[in-house]
């Protein structure tokens, strides 16, 4: 485990040795309600960083803002040093930061294979001119090969020609992660990937997530289950009322008084490790 050699002190807002994503003073309010108010946060490259916090802590809102699906009221954030403020969602994805959604968004009336192919970024046939003139066959064949490998890895290779809408809930979760990978991201943001997934699948998803890190990706994920968080995270960021109240390796978080008061106190029984 990487967590055995911490790359930073467990203090909120601490600087990391090699941050891929840096968030500065990002706030988002709805009416009078402050949903997100993050002073400073850095995400270390090549780690699994989990984002935890009680319901309404602003985890998903922060995801939405960072990925361009929502606008911040103030603040800035950089991916590999490049500012993402005001960058539309699709461009954020193209720059290498791809997200999934809490409620699975399968493209129901596309087949499993098509779901993956849509995520390819290099197909000239996706432009109107290319579609009309043709000549995208090679890129398509290439993408299909990559897609088939991904589907194989996620155990969906028997479902290639099924409509995504006919998959089970767990399979859709896997499909969504596979699809996000097809974009070729550097940072992947998973919003509660384990929610509503049966235990067997959870285990396989966990393995997949760790593999992503080992493949050189940075994983940021929102999770409720503390067991899961303890098991696979290299670093844990705790959000409460929109602000980062603690961060550190999983072991330090479990002992953190502030966290126990703010978060575990609320969920007692089911959340304590």
């Amino acid at each position: 485990m990487v967590a055995d050699q911490p790359f930073a002190e467990p203090v909120p807002g601490v600087a990391k040795s090699d941050p891929v994503l840096v968030v500065d003073g990002v706030t988002r309010t709805f009416g009078g309600l402050v949903a997100v108010d993050v002073g400073h946060l850095e995400i270390q490259r090549h780690t699994v960083t989990s984002l935890i916090g009680p319901n309404g802590a602003g985890k998903t809102t922060l995801f939405n803002v960072l990925s361009g699906f929502d606008n911040a009221n103030a603040g800035e954030w950089h991916l590999n040093g490049g500012s993402l403020v005001g960058i539309p969602a699709h461009s954020v994805a193209r720059r290498g930061m791809v997200r999934t959604f809490q409620l699975t968004r399968s493209l129901a009336r596309l087949t499993v294979m098509e779901n993956l192919l849509v995520a390819d970024q290099h197909n000239p046939g996706e432009r109107l001119r290319g579609a009309l003139l043709g000549g995208w066959g090679a890129a398509e064949a290439d993408a299909k090969e990559r897609a088939a490998a991904l589907l194989d890895r996620f155990g969906l290779s028997t479902m290639v020609d099924e409509y995504a809408g006919s998959l089970s809930g767990g399979q859709r979760k896997l499909l969504e992660v596979a699809r996000a990978l097809m974009v070729g991201p550097e940072v992947i943001m998973l919003d509660e990937p384990m929610a509503g997934v049966n235990p067997a699948l959870t285990q396989s998803l966990l393995t997949h997530i760790q593999t992503l890190r080992d493949d050189g990706m940075t994983v940021i994920f929102i999770e409720h289950d503390m067991d899961v968080v303890q098991e696979i995270s290299d670093w844990v960021v705790v959000l409460a009322q929109g602000a980062v109240i603690a961060e550190g390796p999983p072991s330090s978080i479990a002992r953190n008084r502030v966290v126990i008061d703010a978060y575990l106190g609320e969920h007692h029984g089911d959340a304590a490790p």
């Binding site: 994805a93 399968s106 129901a108 009336r109 849509v118 699809r179 097809m182």
Partner: peptide, 13 residues
């Protein structure tokens, strides 16, 4: 048609 946000998240304008 299926899901605008999901498509956006996959880098499509």
């Amino acid at each position: 048609r299926e899901d605008e946000d999901a498509t956006r998240a996959l880098g499509k304008n």
